[in-house]
Design a protein around this nucleic acid. Structure first.
Length: 308
RNA sequence: GGCGCCCUAGCUCAGUUGGUAGAGCAACGGACUGAAAAUCCGUGUGUCCGCAGUUCAACUCUGCGGGGCGCCA
């Protein structure tokens, strides 16, 4: 039996230049890009998510860009299923799949798999748990988790409502403890192997680039984009989508802060996001770290030519 | 030029009746298994403007110098 194909992943924090790197490779290689970016998937949110432009999208085939509606639910599990399928189709065309993105959870779902759990139809269980959380408070809910799944409760801080709810939700849906499922082999996995290459410029360079990119987004008309979407009745959906750049400007448009303050917050939140991404890549996955685009390109090409 | 107030963390400031200092924000570190650009946890990082004096001991008191703000000229 043949070794499974190894597919390269270009990861890295926001603003590191992943898209540009992928497009450089596209000049010399027959590749298709599997974008692993939870916010670039959302239709109409273009400037603020630094979505590849129409021109950039004409230079290579991008998958998982503009595929969901604002406010629509999408999960790491769906990404695993669909990205695996897409990778297969690309290989069938005789081309190279190249995963590019900064959403760590989606990437590790793809590279390491994720536990299979029954679907919560319409999210009724989660909605109810959220209501109970609001009513009873985090301590009570954490205590409830402690009774059904002490090991998981031990790992989750009581203030982390999202995780406490998720663990309770899993128990209600499956009748099994999250800690048991995680230790089992009930994993959904991709057919392929993946190799991470992380584009990580020095921090001061990255931060300067992030700040400059935010100014550029504003010059390009991010505010107009949002006002247009509000006119089309998508204001609430944008809030739900929870995207840096949109949240802050909605605050400004709703008179909650001056514009310069909103822009400063976009920069700060983007930098913090980049920092969290770096923490993930440093400690969560094994990857080759490169300071610049050329190094990344060489590493990817080594994978494709089969020379390790 | 005279008088008064101020100078402590990256920023805004608190504080020590003399025993080398602490809040908020920022920053930094970490967690993350179907919400992840989400969610959560942890950590003071300091020539206390400079020099000299008094003192066992000065960030604190005194003098000189520097910078800032206000009022009067």
């Amino acid at each position: 039996m043949a070794e499974p194909t190894t597919i390269p992943i270009i990861c890295g924090p926001t603003g590191s230049g992943k898209t540009g790197t992928a497009l450089s490779l596209a000049r010399d290689w027959p590749l298709e890009i599997i974008s692993a970016d939870s916010r670039q998937m959302i239709k109409y949110l273009d400037l603020g998510t630094a979505k590849p432009t129409a021109e950039e999208q004409s230079l290579a085939d991008f998958h998982f860009v503009d595929t969901i509606e604002p406010g629509e639910r999408y999960t790491a599990y769906q990404f695993l299923i669909e990205a695996d399928r897409t990778a297969g189709e690309i290989l069938d065309r005789g081309r190279h799949p190249l995963v590019v993105g900064g959403t760590g959870l989606y990437l590790s779902a793809l590279s390491d798999g994720v536990v299979e759990i029954e679907e919560d139809d319409g999210g009724a269980v989660r909605t109810r748990l959220q209501e109970e959380m609001a009513e009873l408070g985090p301590e009570q809910m954490h205590l409830r988790l402690k009774e059904i799944d002490p090991a998981e409760a031990e790992r989750i801080h009581p203030n982390n409502k999202v995780r406490v709810i998720r663990a309770l939700e899993i128990f209600e849906l499956t009748g099994k403890r999250k800690s048991d499922l995680a230790a089992s082999d009930a994993y959904k996995k991709s057919r392929y192997r993946y190799a991470y290459v992380c584009l990580s410029p020095p921090r001061d360079v990255l931060y300067a680039r992030i700040d400059a990119r935010v100014d550029e987004m504003m010059r390009d008309g991010l505010l107009d984009e949002i006002e247009e979407l509000i006119k089309r009745g998508l204001g609430d959906a944008i809030r739900i989508a929870n995207v840096i750049g949109y949240e802050e400007l909605l605050d400004f448009l709703e008179d909650r802060c001056p514009l310069d303050e909103a822009v400063a917050m976009i920069k700060q939140n983007s930098r913090r996001y980049a920092k969290r991404q770096m923490t993930w890549f440093r400690n969560r996955v094994r990857c080759l770290f490169c300071e610049d685009s050329n190094e990344v390109q060489k590493a990817v090409e080594r994978l494709w030519t089969g020379r390790e």
